[in-house]
């Protein structure tokens, strides 16, 4: 898992890749569409997308003959992990509180 994080940081260290990600965050699109809208050549866009994909920051899905790229935030999984930790702590606090209070006369 640490590998992905390192990769994500490295991937986002490049201004062009940040630009591409922001573009994908607005709407999923193809390599051609990105290259048309941003001042980056098509081969360079493909290269950047590969890095972003390896860093698990974008996903690709085929649509007919095209490949559509979109942001991969691992949305639900990450949210679930955060909430799992949140409620885990809450229940620990509850258990401590309820048993402490009950010990008192």
């Amino acid at each position: 898992m640490a590998t992905y994080v390192d990769d994500a940081w490295t991937a986002l260290g490049d201004p062009s890749r940040r630009q591409i990600l922001r573009r994908l965050a607005e709407r999923p699109c193809s390599v051609t569409e990105i290259a048309e809208e941003l001042p980056i050549s098509r081969p360079a866009v493909s290269q950047h997308l590969r890095v972003l994909k390896e860093a698990r920051l974008v996903l690709v899905r085929p649509q007919g003959t095209r490949r559509i790229y979109e942001v991969d935030l691992q949305g639900l999984a990450t949210l679930r992990e955060e909430l799992d930790q949140f409620w885990g702590k809450a229940l620990e606090n509850f258990k401590r509180l309820v048993e402490e209070e009950t010990e008192q006369p």
């Binding site: 965050a25 607005e26 999923p28 979109e70 935030l73 639900l76 949210l79 679930r80 909430l83």
Partner: peptide, 11 residues
């Protein structure tokens, strides 16, 4: 939790 999802994953 999926109710939070649409839009977020899309950015």
């Amino acid at each position: 939790l999926d109710r939070h999802g649409p839009g977020w994953e899309r950015g």
